[in-house]
Each structure stands twice: as structure tokens, then as C-alpha cells.
Simulated assay, not measured.
Amino acid sequence: MNLDKSQKRISKRVKRGFHGYPMISIQYFGPSEALATKVEVGFIEQENAEPMLETFNSETDIRKDETVQTTIIKIIDRVDAQTVTLEDKVQPLS
């Protein structure tokens, strides 16, 4: 799957809003807002459950990494996520 298609599919799922559980949350981290080098994909099976996190790192902007974006789509599809959330801003690395 190419990068544009992956990003459009993620964006489309985010725009749907809350539709229940299971839920996937996507949050990017980086040294600046212009560069995201880490992404955390959280899976929440039901309300009040602890999220299971999958983390991916990259030397370049991970938002433009076709392999990582395709993997996120596969995770969403595999768990049959009803809700997908995406943090708008790149969070500072801690």
C-alpha cells in the first residue's frame, strides 16, 4: 500500500469519531513539531482497560515512512477497531 493511500485511510477512520471499542490511538513524538521520529499505537479493548502500546522509531520523519503507516493500517484492520484517534501535534520526546 502506498503512503498516500495509508494516510488517507487513517485520516478517514479518525474523522468518523467515536464509535465504541476496540479503539486505536495514534500519537507521534519527535524533537520538534516538524519532525516525528517515534509513533505509539495504543490498543484499548474496552472502556477503562489499560492500553497495549506498540512503538515504532525512525531516524527520519516516521509520518512519511510507508512501511510504518501501512503497519498501522494493518493493526487497525486486524483488531477491527471501531474508533481511531490521532493526536494532532507532535509531542516532545521525553
Rank of each mutant, 00 (worst) to 15 (best):
residue 3 L to R: 01
residue 4 D to R: 08
residue 6 S to Y: 09
residue 7 Q to E: 11
residue 8 K to I: 00
residue 9 R to E: 10
residue 9 R to N: 06
residue 9 R to K: 11
residue 9 R to T: 03
residue 10 I to L: 08
residue 11 S to A: 14
residue 11 S to W: 00
residue 13 R to H: 11
residue 16 R to V: 00
residue 16 R to F: 03
residue 16 R to C: 00
residue 17 G to N: 10
residue 18 F to R: 05
residue 18 F to E: 12
residue 18 F to Q: 08
residue 19 H to I: 00
residue 20 G to I: 09
residue 20 G to Y: 10
residue 21 Y to T: 04
residue 22 P to A: 12
residue 22 P to V: 05
residue 23 M to T: 02
residue 23 M to E: 14
residue 23 M to G: 01
residue 23 M to N: 01
residue 23 M to Q: 14
residue 25 S to P: 02
residue 26 I to C: 03
residue 27 Q to N: 08
residue 27 Q to K: 13
residue 29 F to C: 04
residue 30 G to H: 12
residue 31 P to R: 14
residue 33 E to C: 04
residue 33 E to Y: 03
residue 36 A to H: 04
residue 40 E to L: 08
residue 41 V to Q: 04
residue 42 G to C: 10
residue 43 F to G: 00
residue 44 I to G: 03
residue 44 I to T: 14
residue 45 E to M: 09
residue 46 Q to W: 01
residue 46 Q to I: 05
residue 47 E to K: 15
residue 49 A to G: 04
residue 49 A to K: 14
residue 49 A to N: 12
residue 53 L to Q: 07
residue 56 F to E: 11
residue 57 N to M: 13
residue 58 S to I: 00
residue 58 S to P: 01
residue 59 E to I: 00
residue 63 R to P: 02
residue 63 R to S: 02
residue 64 K to E: 10
residue 65 D to R: 03
residue 65 D to Q: 05
residue 68 V to A: 03
residue 68 V to L: 01
residue 68 V to E: 01
residue 69 Q to C: 06
residue 70 T to I: 00
residue 72 I to H: 08
residue 74 K to I: 00
residue 75 I to F: 10
residue 78 R to E: 09
residue 79 V to W: 14
residue 79 V to Y: 14
residue 79 V to P: 01
residue 80 D to E: 10
residue 80 D to L: 05
residue 80 D to F: 02
residue 81 A to G: 08
residue 83 T to I: 04
residue 84 V to F: 08
residue 84 V to D: 12
residue 86 L to D: 05
residue 86 L to I: 01
residue 86 L to G: 07
residue 87 E to Q: 13
residue 88 D to W: 06
residue 88 D to L: 10
residue 90 V to I: 09
residue 90 V to Q: 06
residue 91 Q to R: 15
residue 93 L to P: 01
residue 94 S to M: 12
residue 94 S to Y: 13
residue 94 S to N: 12
